[in-house]
Computed example of a mutant assay.
Amino acid sequence: MSEAGDPVRARIRAGDRAAFSEVYDAYARAVYNHAYRLTGDWSTAEEVMADTFLDAWRTREQLDPDGGSLKPWLLGMATNKARNANRGLGRRLAFLARRPAPDPVADFADETAGRVDDARRLAAVRQVYGRLRRGEREVLALCVWSGLDYAQAAEALGVPVGTVRSRLSRARERLRRLTDERLGEQRGTYTAKGEEPGRRRGEVEGEAAFAALRLKEIQEGPR
Rank of each mutant, 00 (worst) to 15 (best):
A18F: 01
T163C: 03
V8H: 07
Q219M: 12
G5H: 06
R37V: 05
T79W: 00
A4P: 11
D25H: 10
K193W: 10
L38T: 04
P197F: 07
S69V: 04
R174H: 15
A171P: 01
S146D: 07
A171V: 01
A14I: 03
G162F: 00
E61V: 08
G194Q: 07
A211S: 15
R126L: 07
R176Q: 12
L168V: 07
G158Q: 05
Y27T: 01
E47R: 10
D103L: 11
Q152S: 15
D110H: 08
S43H: 12
G206R: 11
A78S: 10
G68N: 04
V105A: 14
G88S: 06
R11T: 07
R134W: 09
A101L: 15
F20W: 02
Y32S: 07
Q219D: 14
F210P: 02
L70N: 00
Y24F: 12
Y24W: 14
R176A: 15
M49F: 01
L178P: 00
E220M: 11
W73V: 07
V23N: 00
S2E: 14
R174C: 05
M1F: 09
L54W: 08
A97Y: 05
D6A: 13
S146Q: 09
R182D: 14
D16F: 07
D6G: 13
G194L: 06
G88W: 07
Y190M: 12
W42R: 14
A141D: 01
G147P: 07
V159L: 12
L54V: 13
R182T: 10
R99H: 09
L75R: 00
P160L: 08
R115K: 07
L183D: 02
